[in-house]
C-alpha cells in the first residue's frame, strides 16, 4: 500500500513537472506567443467577416447570428489546433531540442507524461480561446445577451478529453516519420473539423460524411457550444451533446495511449527514439 502511494506521488509530481516545463517555455517564448495570437486573431477575422460580406453582396441572412456561428467555428478550429500542436510537441519539440532521450528514459509512465501534456494543452487552449473569442467578438460588437458561457465551458472541457485522446494518436507520428509526422497532425485536425460542421450544419454534408460526423467529438462540441452561447441552453438541455462526448472521451484516451505505445515500441525497435531521427 505504501509502495503504491509512493509511486502515485511520484507520478503526480511528474505530471506537475510536465505542466511546469511547458509553463517555463510559454514564459520564455512570450513574444512569439503574442505574435502567434495576433496571427490567430487575423485568421479568425478573415472567416468571421464572411457574414458581413454576404450581406454586403446582397445576401439576406441574420448577420449577428451567422457572425456568432462562424466565430464559434473559428475559435473551435483554433482550439483544436492548439491541443494537437502541444501534444505533437511531446515528440517533435523534444527531438528538435535533443531532450527526447532524457524524457523518454525518465521513470514517468507514458500515460502521465501524455496526460500532463494534455492537461497543459487544455489549460493553455482554454485561456487563448477565451481571449480570441473576446477580441474577435469586440470587433463585431456581438452582444450575446442570453449566452450561457459556463455551460459552453463544460462542453468544451468534456470535448477536450476526446481531443486529447486523438492528439495522443497523432503525437506519435513524428516518432515514426521525423520529417513529415508533425504535418499529419494538421491533416487530422482538418479532417475532424470538415466532417463536424465547423462553419455549416452537418446536414449539408454527403451522407457518408455525416456518418463520420456522428463519431466525431467536434460535432457534439460545436453543437453544444453553439446551443449554450446562441440559445442559452443549460447542462440539462445539452444532454444530447454531453453523453456522446463522455462516451467518445472514455474510448479515445485508452485508444490514444495504445496507439502511442505501439508507435513508441516501433521507434525503440528501429532506433528512431533519438534526437536526429
Amino acid at each position: 500500500m505504501r509502495a503504491v502511494g509512493h509511486v502515485l506521488r511520484a507520478e503526480l509530481v511528474g505530471l506537475a513537472g510536465v505542466v511546469e516545463r511547458n509553463t517555463y517555455l510559454v514564459r520564455r517564448y512570450l513574444w512569439w506567443e503574442l505574435a502567434f495570437f495576433l496571427w490567430t486573431v487575423a485568421n479568425t477575422l478573415t472567416i468571421v467577416f464572411i457574414a458581413e460580406g454576404v450581406e454586403a453582396a446582397g445576401g439576406r441572412i441574420d448577420v449577428e447570428r451567422t457572425t456568432a456561428v462562424l466565430l464559434i467555428g473559428a475559435v473551435m478550429w483554433a482550439y483544436l489546433g492548439m491541443i494537437f500542436e502541444i501534444l505533437t510537441e511531446t515528440v517533435s519539440w523534444e527531438r528538435w531540442e535533443g531532450t527526447i532521450e532524457y524524457t523518454f528514459m525518465a521513470p514517468l509512465s507514458r500515460a502521465v507524461h501524455l496526460g500532463g501534456m494534455g492537461l497543459f494543452a487544455i489549460a493553455y487552449g482554454l485561456v487563448q480561446s477565451a481571449l480570441l473569442f473576446a477580441v474577435v467578438a469586440f470587433f463585431f460588437d456581438l452582444s450575446l445577451p442570453g449566452a450561457n458561457f459556463p455551460a459552453a465551458l463544460v462542453v468544451l472541457v468534456l470535448a477536450s478529453v476526446s481531443f486529447v485522446g486523438i492528439g495522443m494518436m497523432t503525437s506519435v507520428l513524428p516518432l515514426i516519420s521525423p520529417e513529415k509526422g508533425t504535418q499529419l497532425g494538421f491533416v487530422a485536425q482538418g479532417v475532424l473539423l470538415v466532417v463536424s460542421g465547423v462553419y455549416y450544419p452537418v446536414t449539408v454534408l454527403p451522407e457518408w460524411m455525416q456518418w463520420l460526423a456522428a463519431i466525431s467529438p467536434a460535432t457534439y462540441a460545436l453543437d453544444g457550444v453553439r446551443d449554450a452561447i446562441l440559445e442559452g441552453d443549460g447542462l440539462e438541455a445539452l444532454g444530447d451533446e454531453l453523453w456522446p462526448l463522455a462516451v467518445i472521451g472514455a474510448v479515445s484516451i485508452p485508444l490514444g495511449l495504445a496507439v502511442f505505445r505501439v508507435g513508441e515500441r516501433h521507434a525503440k525497435r528501429h532506433g528512431k527514439l533519438k534526437r536526429s531521427g
Partner: peptide, 27 residues
C-alpha cells in the same frame, strides 16, 4: 546518463531545466 550532446531546452535556464527533469523522477 550524460551523452556527448548536452541536450537541453535552450531558452530555459539551467535551474529550470534541472527542476523539470527532477520532477520526472518524482522530486
Amino acid at each position: 546518463r550524460v551523452s556527448v550532446e548536452a541536450s537541453f531546452f535552450k531558452k530555459m535556464s539551467s535551474a529550470e531545466n534541472l527542476a523539470y527533469a527532477a520532477r520526472f523522477y518524482g522530486m
